[in-house]
């Protein structure tokens, strides 16, 4: 049932997008961003999934014809690392914001405007 993976991936992306657009707390927005990234990663892996095949690790009884497409998995590994870096960066910026503004509510963080 490949469509279940696609369905799951798209729902995760939409849940994440919803959290980013609707939530007022910076941390909740960042959690939304992480959920969205997870959805995208799941989508990428689903693209390379071939029903009934195993992980693309060369071992006994598993040749190129028994494994799923390895490229999307390599891409997802990279994307996960990038996602971790972005999240770490964002959280440290959120710390500075809390120090300077005393709040994490995006409606009160509005010194720059115009």
């Amino acid at each position: 049932m490949i469509s279940a993976y696609y369905f799951g991936a798209i729902s995760l992306i939409l849940i994440g997008l919803y959290a980013i657009l609707v939530k007022k707390n910076v941390l909740k927005m960042l959690i939304g961003l992480s959920i969205m990234e997870t959805g995208v990663n799941l989508l990428l892996v689903s693209v390379g999934y071939i029903s009934g095949r195993s992980a693309p690790i060369l071992s006994e009884g598993i040749g190129p014809n028994q494994a799923v497409d390895p490229i999307p998995q390599a891409l997802v590994l990279t994307a996960i690392v990038i996602g971790v870096a972005t999240t770490a960066m964002a959280l440290s910026v959120a710390m500075i914001i809390y120090e300077k503004y005393g709040t994490l509510n995006v409606e009160e963080i509005r010194r720059l405007r115009g």
Binding site: I13, G16, L33, M36, E37, A79, I97, K100
Partner: peptide
């Protein structure tokens, strides 16, 4: 400064959405 952090978080959130779209 507070302004710099504010600008940065806006950039991170928009940039994060953008890179996810690009990856899709």
């Amino acid at each position: 400064t507070g302004e710099a952090a504010e600008a940065s978080i806006k950039y991170i959130i928009l940039g994060g959405i953008g890179s996810s779209f690009f990856l899709i």
